[in-house]
Design a protein around this nucleic acid. Structure first.
Lengths: 345, 345
DNA sequence: CTGAAAGCGCTAACAC
DNA sequence: GTGTTAGCGCTTTCAG
C-alpha cells in the first residue's frame, strides 16, 4: 500500500493525501479526517526512502563509534548514553544510525556519511582535549553535538557535558574536610577531555586549601579494576602513602578496594575512597560503595539532552544558522559508606 | 557531485557510469577504469536514499533494543555484541540502524521498520524461553537471526548461541571433581533462554553424578553485584550452606566475593567461585578472578557471526528462500584463582 | 558495449 | 481546497 494506492481508494490525488497526512494547513478538515482514517485502516506507512529522497532529509542521526585497540570506547557509559539518545530519536521519528569503525577510519566515515547523505547530523563521542574531528565536522557542515567538550578546540560548537571540574572539586574538598591531606587521584586517560577536567578540579581544590598536588599520587590510564589495584598497591608501598583515593571510575574504585582488603586495611577507617562514576547499571548501589557523583540515569539523561539539542539544531537550521548551545549537568553527590576521617585524626 | 554530473564530466551516460561503478560485466574494461578513476578523483559517493529507492533494498540492518523498567538489556555484553556486528555491517556496506524502544513497543517497532522498508533484516536480542517476536518476524517476512535461542519456539529459524548447557555442565563437573557437593547456582532471570539453559547444564551435571539439585541453592534474578551478595548471605546463613558458587555473571560473582570477605571466609579455600561471563572489558582478568567460560572477545565474535549469517541470508534470499543456519559457540574454560577443593576434603 | 527512457514513492512548485 | 507536473538520484529494462 503506497501513497498512490491510497489516493486511488480515496478518489483523491496523491498530493492531497500527502498533505493531509503531513499536517499541511490547506487541507479541509473533512478530507483530512477521511484520509487519516483510511491510512489507519489500510495500515499505510510512507516509504522512508522515497520521503528522504524527495525531501533531501535523511531523518537519521549518526553516531560514529571508534573501536580502538588502545582503549575501549564501547563501554557501559556509552550504552546508557545511546539508550537515552535513542529514546529521543525514536520519539521524534528519526532513525539512529551507528557506525562502528576502526579508530583510524573515523575521518573517512564522517566524510562518507556526509557525502552519502545518510544522516542529518551526528553526535561526537569521547572528545579529546584537542580533537580534530570537530574541525572536520565544521568543514563538512554536518550539524553535530559533542558529548563532553574539547577544551583546546577554538571556536563555538554545541556540547552537553557533566561538570567534571566541579564534581572533582567537591569530592576533593569533601576529603580535605574529613582531614585527609595525602589524597591520591586515579584518573582516566588525560588526553581525553573529561579526565583532564577532573584533574583540574582535583588540583584546584587542593590549591584552594594550600595543598600542593603530588605527582606520585596522581595516576592516569585506562579505568579498569586492574588499574585501581595496581596503582593502589604501588602508592601504598611508597613512603608518603595516601589516606584517601579519589577515582574516576567505579571499576578503578573496586580495584582500590581489592588492594585495601588484601593489605588488611579497613575501608572508611584506614583509607577512604571517593569515586566519580555512574553506578554501572547492574551494580546497584549496595551502600557499601564509595561516593558517586554521577548516576546511571544522569548519563541517560545526558544522552537525551544531547539528542534533543541536535534535533533542534537540525530543525531550526533548515532556515537560518543556529547558534551553538551548551548544557552543563551537575551530577548529584551521593555519599556512601567507604569514606571516613583521615586516620591521623 | 551526483551520478549525472559525473557522467557529464566523462561524456558518458549515467547508465554506463552506474554500471561501471556497480561491477556490471557488460562494461568495457577501459571505460570502467576511466569511470572509477574519475569517481575517486571527484570523490563521488552514490546517494544512499536514491539507491535504496531504486533498488528497493535498504542496505541496512536493524537492531531493536527494548529498554525495560524491569531489567537492563542495554548491558556490556550487548555493547560488545553490537561492536562485532557493526564491524561486519560497515565492511559490507550496510548501515546499522538501532531502535531503542520501550519494552511494550517492540511489536509496533518491528511492524513499522517492516512497512517503512527501512531495513533488510534484523537481529533479535535477548530471546526468551518462548518468544513471540520470532513468530512476528516470520509473519512479517523480515529476515532475522536470533542472538541466542528460544527453546520453546517451534519451527526453524537462524541463530547464533553460546553453548550455555555445556558451559555450565563443565563448570559444575569441575566443582564436583574438586570434591564439592553443595554447589549453589546464582543464575540470571530464567524466563530468558540463556539462563534456562545454564540451569539445565547445572542440573544435568549434578544428575550425572547422582547429586540432587537443591532448590534452596538455586537463585534466579537480575545479575547484579547486589544479587550475588544478597543470595550468598542468605544461603550461608541457612543450614546446608554451599561450599561453592556457580554464577551466571561476573558481577554476581563479585557480590559473592564481597559477602565472603565480609564473613571472613577465604576464597578458594573455604569457598570456591566459578562464573560464566565475559570479562566485561575494562575488568581485565586480574588473576584473582573466578573462572570465565566466555570472554569479551567471544561475544564480539558472536556479533560478527550473527551479522554475517544475516547478510548471507539476505543476499542469497534475493533469489530463493534460504534454509536457516545455526552456530553454536563453545567458549573456552579459563581457570582463575578463586576455586579450590571442597573444605571437607 | 552504450544510451534513452521509464520508473522507485514521495514532495513541492505552480496552477486552477 | 485540490490537482497537475516535475523532479529527488539512482537503477533497470529495452533498443541499438
Amino acid at each position: 500500500m503506497n501513497l498512490k494506492d491510497l489516493a486511488e481508494k480515496l478518489k483523491l490525488s496523491p498530493t492531497t493525501v500527502s498533505r493531509a497526512l503531513n499536517g499541511y494547513p490547506e487541507v479541509s478538515e473533512a478530507t483530512r479526517v477521511k484520509v487519516e482514517e483510511a491510512a489507519r485502516r489500510f495500515n499505510y506507512r510512507p516509504n522512508t526512502q522515497a520521503k528522504r529522497l524527495a525531501t533531501g532529509r535523511a531523518m537519521a542521526i549518526g553516531h560514529v563509534i571508534p573501536i580502538s585497540t588502545q582503549h575501549e570506547i564501547v563501554n557501559p557509559v556509552f550504552a546508557d548514553f545511546i539508550a537515552g539518545a535513542g529514546e529521543v530519536y525514536a520519539r521524534s521519528g528519526y532513525d539512529f544510525l551507528m557506525s562502528i569503525v576502526p579508530d583510524a577510519d573515523q575521518d573517512r566515515t564522517y566524510r562518507e556519511i556526509r557525502s552519502k547523505g545518510s544522516v542529518d547530523g551526528c553526535i561526537l563521542h569521547g572528545p579529546l582535549l584537542s580533537d580534530p574531528r570537530i574541525s572536520l565536522l565544521r568543514e563538512l557542515r554536518l550539524p553535530f553535538v559533542v558529548h563532553g567538550r574539547s577544551t583546546l578546540e577554538a571556536g563555538p560548537y554545541s556540547w552537553v557535558d557533566m561538570n567534571n571540574i566541579r564534581a572533582f572539586q567537591r569530592a576533593t574538598e569533601f576529603l580535605i574536610d574529613l582531614g585527609h591531606r595525602r589524597i591520591a587521584l586515579i584518573n582516566g586517560i588525560e588526553t581525553m577531555d573529561f579526565a583532564h577536567r577532573r584533574r583540574l578540579g582535583f588540583e584546584q581544590a587542593l590549591a584552594a586549601r594550600g595543598l600542593v598536588p603530588n605527582p606520585a599520587l596522581m595516576a592516569s590510564g585506562e579505568m579498569t579494576e586492574a588499574q585501581g589495584y595496581d596503582e593502589t598497591m604501588a602508592m601504598l608501598a611508597r613512603p608518603g602513602a595516601p589516606t584517601a583515593f579519589l577515582t574516576s571510575s567505579l571499576l578503578s574504585a573496586m580495584g582500590v578496594r581489592r588492594a585495601l582488603v588484601e593489605l588488611g586495611l579497613v575501608l572508611g577507617r584506614d583509607v577512604s575512597i571517593v569515586t566519580h562514576d555512574d553506578d554501572l547499571s547492574y551494580l546497584k548501589n549496595g551502600g557499601e560503595y564509595p561516593i558517586f557523583t554521577a548516576t546511571r540515569s544522569s548519563v541517560r539523561d545526558a544522552g537525551r539532552r544531547c539528542a534533543r539539542m541536535l534535533l533542534r539544531q537540525i530543525e531550526l537550521g533548515q532556515k537560518a544558522p543556529v547558534p551553538p548551545a551548551f548544557d552543563l549537568l551537575d551530577a548529584p553527590l551521593i555519599v556512601g559508606a567507604s569514606t571516613g576521617p583521615a586516620p591521623s585524626i
